[in-house]
Design a protein around this nucleic acid. Sequence first.
DNA 1: CTTGATGCAAAAATTTTGCAATTAA
DNA 2: TTAATTGCAAAATTTTTGCATCAAG
Lengths: 156, 156
Amino acid sequence: MRHQHCHSDAKKVELPTLTHRLRQSSRKVTGAREAILDLLRQHPHPMTNREISELLPSGLCDLVTIYRSMHLLEKLGLVKSYHFGDRQVRYELINTDNAHHHHLICKGCGLVLELKGCFLKELERAIEGEHGFKGISHNLEFFGMCLACQKKKATA
Amino acid sequence: MRHQHCHSDAKKVELPTLTHRLRQSSRKVTGAREAILDLLRQHPHPMTNREISELLPSGLCDLVTIYRSMHLLEKLGLVKSYHFGDRQVRYELINTDNAHHHHLICKGCGLVLELKGCFLKELERAIEGEHGFKGISHNLEFFGMCLACQKKKATA
DNA sequence: CTTGATGCAAAAATTTTGCAATTAA
DNA sequence: TTAATTGCAAAATTTTTGCATCAAG
């Protein structure tokens, strides 16, 4: 995945709000965690641990710390993990404005657009009824070729 | 994922049909590949390389061969890979009867049901129009708790 | 102080690669 | 015969764990 951008109008969660939630769970607000959370705020699209590590000021913390932090943040419900079908886990800050959404990912350049809204609630109800499952959720991501990559391909 | 089952009425692809497609691509029909394809026929739901390896007659082939085979079979379009959100790649035989479908996965026991049909074609068109993307596809999987696991939880 | 967090090294687990030997066509 | 395939060993990744040290609350 070469580049990632995100078009989202959702209001950003404030950093103090996030650190407060750490303290509430008797977790400590450390330099590494603040930096990670702030990075996620500034790049509001799913990122891998490695990407996070590379974007963080060099030497700020070990990659192991990022693994541990992301597990924790996910458990505490501050981030959500996404899978774009390439066996990598990506984490995105959960924005209360825009909690549940899907992405449109360019297979050429890795551009990520955030899609507004979701249309599968009724479908989930139908599936619950038909199969007796409870507590249904879903993963849904779209893939395609963005305008820029279409042009690139045409001229190549 | 502890168990996997699949409810599918789709007609099974015949083994000779599959091996024929290997020969067409000037690939060889080996014991390992026949065994893998037959296993996938008999377990018509997505399986990881490790699961395939463990279900194959012991010592039939190396795990490396399975990795290589699955890459090849995917490239040739005989299998499709799925991601159930646990960072594992799962492969399923492509059945011409039932090429595009989604799954309903129990978070308790790993039961996998195959859902018939797909309802997102119009949605894909809408997204193409709105964002200028071309060739849109999607990944969609549902997760929940199956009846048996609901009971198990209630009595626990 | 006391508990939780971190770095570093090492272990574990997963996936890929090189190469000589083997086998299907 | 020859081009593709395989096994084995080894390398390259990726993720997890242990433990002593450090730091936030």
